[in-house]
Amino acid sequence: MPTDNGSERVEVRKAYKLYIGGAFPRSESGRSYPVSDARGRFLANAALASRKDARDAVAAAYKAWPGWSARTGYNRDQILYRIAEMLEGRRDQFAAEVAAAEGLSRARAAAQVSAAIDRWVWYAGWADKLAQVLGAGNQVSGPFFNFSVPEPAGVVAAVAPRSSSLLGLVSVVAPVIVAGNACVVLAAEDRPLPAVSLAEVLATSDLPGGVVNILTGAVAEVAPWLASHFDVHGLDLAGVEDPALAADLERAAAGNLKRVLLPEREPDWTADPGLTRMRAFLEIKTVWHPVGI
């Protein structure tokens, strides 16, 4: 855009930082790494998260989880829907970022953004329906009232898929939090910018700070700390492409018997997600009480 003296306007660039406990800190390590677009042109410097950042993120998630899981389904439903509303309002920005990150045409990038928005809406509606679909009234052979309900496992650490920097990320985070879990997600290593922008959407959607924490950095460096952390209850390896690293992370997760969701071979993030990703991080609780007078 021409300015008064006829030259191009110098644009205001954004600093891409982490998202921990509802705030946007830089890495405590002071490190960053350059992020390029699909053709190798410099886009921005992203924060290179450290072990301590990962631990801070887990601490924030652990703190946020009880309050979030105590919200009503209706309330979580509305907050996830609010995320979709906020995302809708910033379609153009996300389409540009996804296009740059993944080397897509503007139209195909926009389709990814639309699918991501619709995914939030789809998962939002599950918040008050999971107990009916996944729970049960159990007809036991005796004078007892007996029912089963799904409950969140707790804190889930996820590695977001590289192949789909926004839709894939949303498809991993939404099923974790809709049921009341808190989440620490490691963004796609070389395509982290849509994730950081998504954090800005989350921060303005009435989602309590700490429910979703987003880290950017090296998967091989940060993921092992999340996989071995004893305050993490579930691990989603969606974005771990190296089978040896995935096996190492799964082995580390056995330390406190985390629930682990293994990466799919060729995931189609546009397909109907089904219940699998929600069910993976839910516990079934069964309550008995005698019937009598």
Partner: peptide
């Protein structure tokens, strides 16, 4: 994974049984 209220150690093939956290994963029953 199982809460017994005003009773204890009751089991039934229609009632899911299994643990949270380090008590394991998966349910048996129902």
């Amino acid at each position: 994974g199982v809460v017994w209220a005003n009773t204890f150690n009751k089991f039934d093939p229609a009632s899911p049984f299994g643990g949270y956290k380090e008590s394991g994963y998966g349910r048996e029953g129902g």
